[in-house]
Each structure stands twice: as C-alpha cells, then as structure tokens.
Design a protein around this nucleic acid. Structure first.
Lengths: 345, 345
DNA sequence: CTGTTAGCGCATTCAT
DNA sequence: ATGAATGCGCTAACAG
C-alpha cells in the first residue's frame, strides 16, 4: 500500500461534481455524455493532471492493452529492425509492448517467459525469434498450450498458428539466378549456421537453381559459416582451395560477405571481374563496401509491423482466414544490385 | 468482461480446500504457512496450471513490477546493446520491461510516452535516449515533473536526477593521446553530428589533447559527419584536401572509420603508415576491417545494466548518496589497439 | 444522458 | 497458522 496518493477517478468526480461513471465515460470517449459535462470533466482532468490507472482499468474490463514480444539478438541488424517495426505498429494500434529477450531455448526458459506474459494478461504474443532446428518442437509445444493469439516471426509454418516470415528460399533463388545471369559459371555458397531455419532456406534456394543449371556434385560448393566476418573469410579460403574454378559466391549475410571481400583481395581476385558476390540483409554499410555489395534487402521493419497487424486481427477476430493463409505472410526480399556482382555492368 | 474463465486464486483455494489467503501466502513465499498446507497448495497450483494475475496483484498491492524504458535508434549497435543490458538486468531483479521507442523529441511526443508509462504504474523509467542539444531542456522539464525514479543514459548530468553515461570525453582523449604517442603529428577528427552530446564530448576530448600538443588553428582539422560510412568518406576528402600534412584521424564511430579507410585507399594512402585511424564503438566488424581498426570499446551492455541497478536502488531507496554521485555512473570506454593506428608496431 | 451497484483478482488488514 | 472482511481504481450492467 505504497499509495503515492495519486489522483483517482473519485477525486476527479468529486471536484467535477459528477459521478465516477461520467468520468469513465469521458475517458473512454463514450458517446453518451452531454457536451457540457464532457467539457467540464476534461477541464478538471487537465487541471488536476489526472491520468487513469491502466492497471485498474485492465483488471476491471478484463482486457489489457499490452502485447508481449519475445526477442533475440538485438545486436544484429535484422532483429533490431523487426523490433522497431513491432513497436511502431503496436503504438499505432494503441498497444503497449512488454519486452522479454531470450537467449536460451530450453523448455524452462521458454515456459518461464510465456507464463510471465500470460500472468501479465497480455492480449497476445509475438515470438520474434528466428527458427532453430533444435528448438522448433519445444517452442511449438509451448506455444500450442497458449490460449491467446500468437504470431511467430521468421520460422517455418506451424499448423493453426500465424507465422510471418521473409521468403528466404526466394532470396536464395534470386541471388543465385542473378549470378548465373551475370555469366558466372561456378557459384558456391557460404551459409549461416544450418541450425537456423533462415540459413537452410537460403541454401535450399541456392541448391535449386544450381541444380537447374545441370550441375552435379555440388556439396563441395557449400561452406557453413556462423554469420561473422571471420567465417566469411574462412569460407572463401575453404571454397576457393576446394574449387579453383569458383567464380561467384552467394553469401548468407552481409557481414560474411565482408570477410569474403577481404579474403578475395588477399588472394588477388578482383571483384566482380574474377569473383561475383551477393550478400543478404542489406545492412547500411553494404552500399559502402568496396566494391558496393549486391545483396537482398530484408524488409525487417515491415515484417515486424505485419506481425502486429496480424496479431491485432487475431485479437479482434477480423478476417481470420486471411490472417492465417495470406500470401502476404511470406514477404519476399528484394535484390539490390550493386557492383560486387555485375561483371558486365 | 471477456473472461476467458481463467483459473483464479479462488478456484485454487476451493480445490485445495483452504482460503484464498493461504494461497496468496504460498504464492508470495510468506513464512506463516504450515509445510503441509504449502505442499498441498503448490501441488494443486501445478495441477491446475494456475498463474497469478499480475494485474490484480499490482492493483491490490499498489505496486507493479514493471519498469518503463524509452529507447531510440535500435538499428544502431550501441542502443541495441544498451537495451539488451537493460532487459537482462531487469529480469534479474524481477522487473518486466515496458518498451517505447521515440524518434521525435518535441514536448508532445515526450509527454505522451511518459504519461503512458505513469498510467501503466511503472515503478521507474529508464530514458535510454542519447542527449541532443536541441531537446535537452524539454526533456529535463518533462522528467522533472515525474514523481517516480528516473535514470537517464548517455547525456550530460542533470541536477537531482541519475545519469549513467559512457565517458566520451575520456574516450576522445584516449584516442588522440594514443595517436600522438604513436608518433603521428597532425591529428584531425571526424565527429558525429554535433547536436549529439556524445559527439560533442568526444570532440572536446580530442580538442584538449591537441591543444596540449601546442597546436593552434585547429578548427580546420575538424569535420562534422553524421555517423554514416559515407560521411566518413567525405570527411576524409575534406580534411585531406584542407590539410595535406594530415597523418591521423580520430573518427567519431566505426562506421565512419570504414568510410575513411576506403577514401584513404582511393587516395593512395597506406594505413597505418601514412594515416593512423582510431574509431569509436568497437562494432563486431571493426576487428575485421582492413586493416583491423583501433577503436574505443563502449561497454554498452554494462551501461544498460547499471541503469537498472541504479533504478532498483532508487526504487528501494538504497544508498541514494552513492546512487547519484558514484564515480561509476560514468563508465570509461576502453581503447582497443589494433593495426590501423600502430605505425611502429 | 446520468448515477447506483457490483465486482474484476488479489493482498492487506484484522481477527481467531 | 489460518480465515473473514475490506478495498485497490476502474468499468459493466442496470436503473432512472
């Protein structure tokens, strides 16, 4: 009872000379208040500096205005932008954002954060954590138990749940097709950790196109990195020594691409003449790499916003069909062509 | 009254055959419950999958477990890490994090977000927004009105408020001293936008050291950038053409340093032989720049954690003296020496 | 249009 | 060690 003697609806009612109900009506913009009363109340509210206690409102009305967001890896460009998109759109819809970050995906940690959110009476949850093969099932089970709407971001679809994601498969295809179109013949790939769904999808896109080109024995053209600049560097060395005729690489992200550029330089290869490179992410530096990096732009912010929109629809039970099945839930990344891949530009 | 018929404390009490009080006591780990009763209740709770309604708890007890965090620019490395640090430490203390992002700093937006937080009954607020000269006063006034604890991050001190910040001035000094020690003679600087407090402080540190070296007419050695790679590139061109004898640059962040490296290469300058460079931030790529970048490591995560620690102390009125005046509130960045500045390494 | 009554789920008195 | 009564600040349902 650490009551800061904050002003309550009662105080306002008393000084305004009306009942608390009228105040409540004004606060909630109900139509059934006389203009005079409304005006008077609004004035008193302003004068007293009154702000309604949202906690009490939630308890009373049985619904909060809070959505829970479970995030991961904000140090990375993508996740941070997704979160930004979520927050912006949430504010637009009048939601507050309760944030929890997770970096371990065992059952205990997952359930703790979900339980906490449920206890906080969130309206819905956005699971903004990239899909990992080794935690998929645990998460599916945990999420399945929830009785509130959930939207998941950047993972493979789950039955009866809404998943919004970048179409990484399409991204892989676009990158690889572009390289072949530019006349490169031997297109390798450096992937992210293959425990990541995103990395797998990008690889699958690459694989499809390479096979379409009639190539065989292509596994030697694959190197699994770990998203870091360093692993891009290593990856190039490994691929290049195993495939002396290598002339292009689709790299799983922009940071690794930077490593590839360095390693290529060190090995006396010119980019894009001797080696074509396409990255993924379009981080803000990519434009200024030397040479400027061709890459796939991920509409991360839009993705975050879409997650909130879907959650909102779910909460208000609007267009549920569309909500679950919309093609829009899979957003295609956009190829940004720059110098690193344009041999005949 | 969208009652999802969630299990309440009453249900648990009924099936456990005790009063709601006993349940409440068990939940709050009160000592005055018999071991048998406790065990029984805990079992029932587990069986029923009961989770206490935090909203109701907050209303009843008059205190929430929520802290409000106002953030900015998560796409950037520093702010994202600060937020990560905040979340981690908050979870440690048992706080939930309510997140709001702001990108405009006029009175209306500022007051809206603060009012919202107050209405949500947050225990305290962390203002994790870099200081801008043009919004300092508005913010001070807005924050001053609050009756709950506030901790501000990375701005100049305010009377009667807690500010935790990286010692950017020291960072500027360290970088510049290091360059002179390495034998460079004409050390310029490329700053961030000077509306940023951080940029100003770094510049001031540089200025002090340069003056100590007996240099005069030093304004021509300053270029104001905007944190982007591109502006680092421009900055180098501008400084180099105005100062042909320039042989080192303290650059306000790592991204601009990348631009400088590119521009220097283009102009046929070798790094570090002809040009020494020190950046700021120690982004994860810095180690892999070519050459590897000497830079100041910002303990952003620790900074976020410290903000929460201070807030917690404030909330519980622990060590208030220390809280406000501690030297620790100003965290010194650490110089990471790499190749870009070691001429005689 | 407005006021009255009741209750959201829990913690905090007090009793016992 | 336990239970009964009371109220947190607000909204919902009803009455007028």
């Amino acid at each position: 009872m650490v009551n800061k003697s904050r002003i309550t609806i009662k105080d306002v009612a008393k000084t305004a000379g009306v009942s608390t109900q009228t105040i409540s009506r004004v606060l909630n913009n109900r139509p059934d208040v006389s203009p005079q009363a409304r005006e008077r109340v609004e004035e008193v509210i302003r004068e007293m500096g009154y702000a309604p206690n949202i906690i009490a409102r939630s308890l009373s009305s049985g619904r909060s205005n809070i959505v829970g967001v479970v995030g991961f890896g904000l140090e990375y460009y993508g996740p941070a932008k997704v979160l930004t998109g979520i927050e912006k759109k949430a504010t637009e819809y009048g939601f507050s954002v309760l944030l929890a970050l997770l970096d371990q995906f065992d059952q205990e940690h997952i359930e703790r954060v979900l339980t906490q959110f449920v206890a906080q009476q969130v309206l819905g949850i956005i699971w903004a954590i990239p899909g990992f093969t080794d935690s998929m099932e645990i998460i599916e089970r945990a999420v399945d138990k929830l009785e509130i709407p959930v939207v998941l971001i950047n993972r493979n679809p789950i039955e009866k749940k809404i998943v919004v994601a970048v179409d990484n498969h399409s991204g892989g295809r676009q990158a690889t097709e572009h390289l072949f179109q530019q006349g490169y013949q031997n297109v390798g790939t450096i992937t992210g950790p293959l425990t990541w769904w995103e990395a797998q999808e990008r690889l699958a896109g690459w694989r499809e196109v390479v096979k379409d080109q009639g190539k065989s024995n292509i596994d030697r053209l694959i190197f699994e990195g770990d998203w870091t600049v360093e692993s891009g560097d290593c990856g190039f060395e490994a691929l290049f020594s195993a495939n002396p005729d290598l002339d292009a690489i689709f790299v799983g992200n922009d940071q690794m691409s930077l490593g590839v550029i360095q390693a290529a330089n060190r090995n006396g290869l010119r980019i894009p003449e001797d080696l074509g490179i396409v990255g993924f992410d379009n981080i803000s530096e990519a434009k200024f790499f030397f040479p400027a990096l061709t890459t796939l732009h991920q509409p991360a912010r839009r993705l975050g916003g879409l997650a909130v929109t879907r959650l909102n629809e779910c909460i208000h039970k609007i267009d549920l069909e569309v909500c679950y099945q919309s093609e829009e839930n899979r957003i295609s990344p956009e190829l940004i062509v720059r110098q690193s891949s344009t041999r005949f530009g």
